[in-house]
Amino acid sequence: MEYYVKSIIPILKMNYDKFTPLEKNIADFFIGNKERVDLSSKAVAERLYISEASLSRFAKKCGYRGYREFIYQYESTFVGNRESMTGNTRMILNAYQELLNKTYSMIDETQIDRISRAMDKAERVVVGGSGSSGQAAAEMEMRFMRIGVNIDSIQDGDLMRMRAVFQDARSLVFGISVSGETDSVLYLLRESHWRGAKTVLITAEKKEEFSEFCNEVVCMPSLRYLNQGNLISPQFPILVMVDILYAHYAALDKGKKELLHDDTLRALDGGKRRQPISGVK
């Protein structure tokens, strides 16, 4: 399987609901295609009973200068008939690799850098999530706490609603909802945003309404569209995003954060204290 190659398939899936019926028909072909076929504009137009101009307009709507550029990118990541999987281990590892490739295609490093710097400035950070998303929130709290972030995770829906009213301009609030439909998480973000906090939603669904109460929407791949996705932990794509955010944040004043992390290890081991760092949040 190709490693870390920019693919247009996740982009098609992410924007699928915005396509017209004709565009969805085109997208369905490229998403579902599993064979090496003639992908010239003439051949595809005849196959789909559409005009070549329609293919050109579709490519431009996807962010390309034309169909030729679109199909070049598509073919560069297209994998024909894959050799059959030989066992559960190979099947799962291939699914994880596919998920990582999709994450690579979707990640916006400029956005991650903005969020990292907002976290560095915030006096307090809150992260809320339910179910598996709540478990990922707890992991996020543990990791960032160890490098000096004043962070709390919340998994209970009622607590999310109550804690929302205490947020203000000094706060950075994360909400994790794979479906983008968890009421308590959305309430946490809406109420916190209304009270002046910066808000970040980590989700697999992209909806225009999120922009009304989220300063940033971090999109991750959906297991829905992944082969063998039902066998993959729903926490995995979330934790990948958390790891990327952690790496960017830890790179800000790296030496200081490494010392803080080492201090937590010494604390767990009951080791010798050293002079504390001043100005830690």
Results as ranks from 00 to 15, higher is better:
6 K>G: 01
37 V>T: 07
105 S>M: 02
108 D>V: 06
57 R>W: 14
171 S>A: 11
237 P>Y: 04
17 D>W: 00
51 S>W: 07
9 I>F: 06
7 S>W: 06
192 S>Q: 02
199 T>A: 01
104 Y>E: 02
26 I>D: 13
239 L>R: 12
99 L>F: 07
187 Y>E: 02
73 Q>M: 11
21 P>F: 02
205 E>N: 15
128 G>I: 10
72 Y>C: 08
238 I>G: 03
98 E>L: 03
34 K>D: 12
262 D>N: 12
172 L>D: 05
113 D>N: 10
189 L>A: 05
222 S>K: 00
180 G>M: 06
74 Y>S: 04
239 L>I: 10
112 I>T: 09
141 E>C: 02
79 V>P: 09
213 F>P: 03
167 Q>L: 03
141 E>H: 12
179 S>R: 08
77 T>C: 09
240 V>G: 08
26 I>F: 07
244 I>D: 00
45 A>L: 06
170 R>G: 13
19 F>S: 01
101 N>M: 05
216 E>H: 15
235 Q>S: 11
97 Q>R: 10
22 L>Y: 12
31 I>R: 01
82 R>C: 13
4 Y>N: 15
40 S>C: 02
266 R>P: 07
100 L>N: 13
211 S>A: 11
141 E>M: 00
128 G>E: 03
103 T>N: 15
142 M>N: 13
168 D>M: 10
243 D>M: 01
167 Q>P: 09
255 G>V: 03
201 L>E: 04
273 R>W: 02
187 Y>M: 10
62 C>S: 09
48 L>H: 02
234 P>F: 09
34 K>E: 12
261 H>V: 07
29 F>T: 10
88 N>L: 14
42 K>D: 08
218 V>T: 10
246 Y>S: 09
227 N>T: 14
251 A>Q: 04
163 R>H: 09
45 A>D: 01
88 N>G: 13
113 D>V: 11
22 L>P: 07
43 A>P: 11
100 L>T: 01
1 M>K: 00
65 R>H: 08
16 Y>P: 06
89 T>A: 13
228 Q>S: 15
116 S>F: 04
204 A>H: 02
86 T>I: 12
187 Y>P: 08
116 S>E: 00
242 V>D: 06
68 R>H: 14
234 P>Y: 07
179 S>L: 01
163 R>W: 09
221 P>Q: 08
118 A>V: 01
17 D>Y: 11
231 L>C: 05
72 Y>F: 13
87 G>S: 03
79 V>A: 13
74 Y>F: 14
114 R>P: 08
109 E>A: 09
160 M>P: 00
115 I>G: 10
107 I>R: 02
242 V>G: 00
42 K>M: 11
247 A>G: 09
141 E>T: 12
250 A>G: 04
25 N>A: 06
243 D>K: 05
233 S>W: 10
278 S>H: 10
137 A>W: 01
226 L>I: 06
147 I>L: 01
160 M>F: 09
45 A>S: 08
